[in-house]
Design a protein around this nucleic acid. Sequence first.
DNA 1: TCGTGCAATGAATACGTATGTGGCGGGATT
DNA 2: AATCCCGCCACATACGTATTCATTGCACGA
Lengths: 353, 353
Amino acid sequence: MQGKSAARKAAQPTSLEIAHLAGVSQPTVSRALRGSPMVSTATRERIRAIAEQLQYSVDRNASSLRTRQTRTLALLIFEDPTPDDSLINPFFHSMLGSITRACAERRYDLLVSFQPRTPAEHSDREYGRRADGIILLGYGDYHLYRPRLDALIDSGVHFVRWGQVQEGQPGHAVCCDNFQGARDATAHLLDCGRRRLAFIGHASSRYPEFFERYRGYAAALAQRGLTVDSALQADAISTEEAGHAAALALLERQVPFDGLLAASDLIALGAMRALREHAVAVPEQLSVAGFDDIAAASLASPALTTVMQDTRLAGEILVDTLLRLVRGEAATDRVLPARLVVRASSAPVARRS
Amino acid sequence: MQGKSAARKAAQPTSLEIAHLAGVSQPTVSRALRGSPMVSTATRERIRAIAEQLQYSVDRNASSLRTRQTRTLALLIFEDPTPDDSLINPFFHSMLGSITRACAERRYDLLVSFQPRTPAEHSDREYGRRADGIILLGYGDYHLYRPRLDALIDSGVHFVRWGQVQEGQPGHAVCCDNFQGARDATAHLLDCGRRRLAFIGHASSRYPEFFERYRGYAAALAQRGLTVDSALQADAISTEEAGHAAALALLERQVPFDGLLAASDLIALGAMRALREHAVAVPEQLSVAGFDDIAAASLASPALTTVMQDTRLAGEILVDTLLRLVRGEAATDRVLPARLVVRASSAPVARRS
DNA sequence: TCGTGCAATGAATACGTATGTGGCGGGATT
DNA sequence: AATCCCGCCACATACGTATTCATTGCACGA
């Protein structure tokens, strides 16, 4: 019988044991370790020393049960609809890293889950119980997850969403300045001497982030007195394959263009593959810029000009905003700056012609 | 006063409330929902219906406190010593995804943490308390984390490690067949008509995975009657920068080579950048192969020939092995197959010369 | 008819922590 | 010098669940 639970963990010390050793009661130990002023400095230090020596650590379950706080945040990442089952949007990797770090610094645990895009309000509630709050990460068709947000509001679960900040959306959101970033990138392409700029990515309010980027693209064109040509826009979700397909579609239209702004780096990389297949030289014949600055952007050849989102800052803002909500404090939506990173894919047209 | 805890979550129903509604005692509810045969079918169904209707879910904290099981696994990812703070080894992203999925399928939660490489046995114990078991992910200098493994053994925490399976290592490990993979890749480079093959990556037992790959490389050469030339080996950890630097070092030695096996894709990509800078054409003048098959490998140009590790399978095996240990069952180390993926970077030398 | 045993349930309790409340003693206040 | 107050601590209890043990009722066999 004893064999089954063989390698049972060594019993961890409890606050009661420490109490016995210190010659005080268990509540005093609890208070001392939490730094309560009700305990004299002398006993507090004595208790601390014993706890240290025994490598005591508070039982999170018991503590959570009593305080109703889990000191855990949940991160729900919406899966991208990619055929490759392990391929998550690389941009989210970066976010995952920074969120993890931000949580650790604030002594919170992080529960991570990849979520199917299908509505699953029930599972959201579950996570709401296990964590003090939820961070939602994902972009794509807004209509798909809107019901989930409403359900979260209803169940009173605290949450923050990474995604376009806009009026009338449920809950709180943090995003980077998609409009500004895209405008800067577009202006840069124009500065490179390009005049006919294509845009690949959805340009509909169903995809708020992409739509903002599209608006930034249009604004930059307008600022130079250029008009948007709908023949130079093609829809694509944020995958390499979609970018590839959309670029092919553009090429088939036979409408000439000399610059390309992709709504994400994955799209840009897919588009560059299509261009290569059609022997369009980047950046000699055509300048390309993306968005996100995923790792592959700087590794690509030519290295991809893109708009960098400060994921480190984003992670911290997300976590801090959520913790404010958890503490019942006021929180606001946040728009973070986006920064243009110029690389080889957008080299200016040679001036000496 | 009430303002602070304003958006308090709606109080969740408890087993006691269900008991009242069903006209039974709380223990009966607990038994019924856990499927105990001690409860008659009639009452069980009645209780189930009420629980369903109230959207009841067991309080994980209370349950864990009672049963001493958290139904949670912890994933500790050793940070790579990269200057870029959000750049985690891309291969691990893939593993993270598959581990997350494997946990979800088995109804386990996953606690994710990125760990500094500095010894932190104390934090390991912490995670051991919060989770039923720990998955360790990381490669690099084995000497650095060996003490952590020993400490884990001492504290009786269940854990599985992703890393080279070898004799005399503490705990259980799962890895892919690094030797076979590297041998296949090397044989492929030879099949491409290359004869002087370089190897970039540590070739020391301090780095067990890389060492296995090096051994595979050497074995493939030996099989064709070729000898290993130490002038064609350069050390590198698994970063793009290290690969770049190592390739430059190789080039400076002025020892000619026409093929290159990198111990990881990141190294290979860095090396390809160095080659490009030195106007060495890949694959025309030199064939390159990597290891891991990270996302960037297929996006690179030329697309990188590499050895794919089946991360989906790996995640499942890791989780299953760990769960066996948790249940007190016997578990064994596992070596998973590795599969060569041929892409453009290794194109064979033209036959018609 | 009465005991025997099993099936089904309730009562009691423990898991480890956090906190409201009561009590004890000593210094300050009058 | 008696009172009051406050610092410091112990006692009791609750969080929600899972399990051990006692209890009830009922069918069955002798």
